[in-house]
């Protein structure tokens, strides 16, 4: 399913052009038309599509939501993991059993944004999408709970359930050919003991919620004409399980077997081309004000200090 890599001379030519003419955008706003030629460039989600597809609770973090307001637009970088995931979704046929894609990578490498790119593709192509968002949110805090009436022994999270239903209703106004289910930080479904308690004062474990059971049920291969795209997140998971970012470690044996067979997609740090494109984008959005950040030495320093990690780069650029 991987597309052939760009040959090295073309890549160096493109990299040269990015450095020379502070070029960071692609005019192609349709994610299904992106190719490896657009890799590393930013595309903007039009305002009307933002209103149609991404209403309600944001699928990205609070910090990125603030950044979106400051930049006055929602732009995503076209990156290889998202291209690969979209390519996989394009191959899905009505007869196929549901596809499972797992995005994994280091902290701040862009897993959530690759997922958002995939969701944008799906909604634009009239898929029916259920986006659970960051499900760590459900289990990390103490929400109101109620015993489920339909499912014996399970507990409801009324507030979260209403939020999810409202989001599904808002996002899927015009429908629908295939089904997409996305979860950000899926390892949270095997989170373990939560702060919420049953009537007998014992703690509720995360699989004992009806919401998690509904998601877990969709991770089987016995339905067709759809896909499940999830990310595994080290920081969103349990505090005592942070030694590796690999899916087998984060999901555990149970979770891994539940999702198996899946296509793992590695989300890495920026390449050199992507890094310079991102710096150019920040400059374009007036986010980099320090004159030293425009010099080759300054950019080299940023590259070295961040290790080309997107989140680290953002943190370094914040006070500049």
């Amino acid at each position: 399913m991987m597309r052939p890599a760009l040959n090295s001379s073309l890549q160096s030519f493109l990299l040269g052009s990015i450095r020379r003419i502070s070029h960071c955008r692609t005019s192609q706003a349709d994610p299904s038309c992106h190719t490896l030629q657009d890799e590393g460039l930013f595309y903007t989600i039009p305002e009307d599509e933002m209103k149609d597809f991404f209403q309600g609770e944001p699928l990205w973090g609070r910090e990125h939501d603030k950044q979106r307001k400051t930049f006055q637009e929602m732009s995503l970088m076209v990156r290889r993991p998202a291209l690969e995931a979209i390519n996989c979704l394009k191959q899905a046929r009505p007869g196929f059993p549901s596809l499972h894609l797992v995005l994994y990578g280091r902290d701040g490498a862009g897993k959530t944004m690759s997922l958002v790119n995939t969701i944008h593709f799906a909604l634009k192509n009239k898929w029916f999408a259920i986006n659970a968002g960051l499900c760590s949110y459900w289990f990390k805090f103490k929400w109101e709970t109620a015993p489920s009436e339909t499912m014996e022994g399970l507990y409801n999270l009324p507030m979260m359930g209403v939020q999810l239903l409202a989001q599904i209703k808002l996002q899927n106004a015009q429908l629908l050919c295939k089904t997409l289910i996305t979860v950000d930080g899926v390892n949270n479904l095997w989170y373990g003991r939560t702060q919420m308690k049953k009537l007998d004062k014992s703690h509720i474990h995360s699989p004992e919620f009806s919401l998690s059971q509904l998601l877990l049920r969709s991770f089987t291969n016995d339905w067709s004409n759809g896909a499940v795209v999830v990310t595994v997140d080290r920081l969103a998971g349990q505090p005592d399980r942070r030694e590796s970012y690999m899916p087998r470690y984060l999901l555990g044996k149970e979770g891994f077997e539940k999702l198996d067979p899946f296509i793992p997609i590695h989300v890495g740090n920026y390449t050199e081309r992507e890094f310079y494109s991102c710096v150019n984008y920040y400059t374009d959005r007036l986010w980099l004000q320090n004159p030293a950040a425009q010099t080759p030495e300054g950019q080299k320093e940023l590259e070295f200090l961040s290790g080309r990690n997107p989140r680290d780069l953002k943190t370094l650029c914040d006070p500049l």
């Binding site: 603030k66 986010w287 004000q289 030293a292 950040a293 010099t295 030495e297 300054g298 320093e301 500049l320």
Partner: peptide
């Protein structure tokens, strides 16, 4: 290259971000 003796000692990077916002 981003060093500024006056800024490094007394400043708060988060505040600079908010200033830009």
């Amino acid at each position: 290259v981003f060093h500024d003796p006056r800024v490094n000692i007394q400043s708060n990077p988060q505040a600079f971000k908010e200033v830009k916002r």
